[in-house]
Simulated scan of single mutants.
Amino acid sequence: MSGAVRRTGLVTGAGSGIGRAAALEFARGGAAVAVLDLDADAAAETAGLIGKSGGEALAVTVDIADEQSVKAAIGRTVEVYGGLDFAVNNAGMASHDRQLDELTLAEFDRVLGVNLSGTFLCLKHELPLLDGGGAIVNVASNGGLYAIPRAPAYVAAKHGVVGLTKVAAVDYAPRGIRVNAVCPGPTDTPAFDRIAAGTDLIARQEAITPLGRMARPEEAAAAVVWLCSEAAACVTGIALSVDGGRRA
């Protein structure tokens, strides 16, 4: 739109899956997007896709489990774009096929360190930059709302992400900052394909989903982008399911 002010933001874990889909959708809407990912090549690929479509993107490598890396990546985004209007904390890691007594403390700590502490670190360094307005979306999981069998560390971490979201929403609402979570169910991403390889997991997930299929990354991304938009100006502190009816 002629004369429109360009919005700027960042998406973590934007090298593939939901993060990539969200970054592409923000760019289609005219935003400049910093594409953050642990995999530098994947981040560059997403940024390249945005550039080929006429959008503006910046590829930045980040390890969300490391505070200095998070601080540097967010700082780089602000240095290039001059500010931050929205942030999507999507990066995380899976952990499955372990009952609680089979899980080592090291693995439990690692999963919480990436999924929960990593989200905390992103929020910590994003929130001060959004003072006066802006939106943050944390990508949690249906595992942040109910149990996923044999995934205790993942479920604990994602429940924590939902809790952080609610507290941040209440604490920062007086500053005009909105914080929400999106909770996808099983989604057709490369990460899920790796988990399901050699099993009937996808068929089983589809069988217990009311809509009869997994979500597409673009569908979860659409919820993320909406929550960051003015159309959701009075929405904060929610955990929005994108799960084909599983929560119902």
Results as ranks from 00 to 15, higher is better:
217 P>T: 02
201 L>H: 06
171 D>M: 14
183 C>G: 10
219 E>M: 11
183 C>H: 02
118 G>R: 00
123 L>Q: 08
229 S>G: 14
168 A>Q: 05
219 E>H: 05
189 T>K: 02
125 H>T: 03
142 N>C: 12
192 F>I: 15
199 T>D: 08
188 D>P: 03
124 K>T: 03
122 C>K: 01
219 E>G: 02
173 A>Y: 11
121 L>F: 10
192 F>H: 04
140 A>V: 04
209 T>M: 05
197 A>L: 14
212 G>R: 07
208 I>E: 15
102 E>Y: 07
156 A>K: 06
159 H>Q: 13
239 A>Q: 05
116 L>G: 03
178 R>K: 14
199 T>F: 06
139 V>K: 00
236 T>V: 12
239 A>N: 03
182 V>S: 07
136 I>C: 08
242 V>T: 05
143 G>Q: 00
153 A>S: 15
195 I>H: 02
111 V>F: 01
128 P>D: 09
176 G>L: 08
118 G>H: 02
222 A>N: 09
138 N>W: 04
182 V>G: 00
217 P>W: 01
157 A>V: 09
224 V>I: 15
228 C>G: 09
209 T>I: 03
196 A>D: 10
189 T>Q: 02
109 D>Q: 15
206 E>Q: 11
188 D>H: 09
107 E>C: 07
151 A>C: 10
215 A>Q: 03
243 D>V: 09
159 H>R: 14
109 D>I: 09
131 D>H: 15
231 A>I: 10
191 A>Q: 07
122 C>N: 02
139 V>T: 08
238 I>A: 14
132 G>Q: 08
246 R>S: 13
166 K>H: 11
222 A>D: 07
224 V>Q: 04
238 I>M: 13
231 A>V: 03
180 N>Q: 12
181 A>M: 05
149 P>M: 03
213 R>V: 10
238 I>K: 09
240 L>R: 05
152 P>E: 01
185 G>C: 04
195 I>C: 07
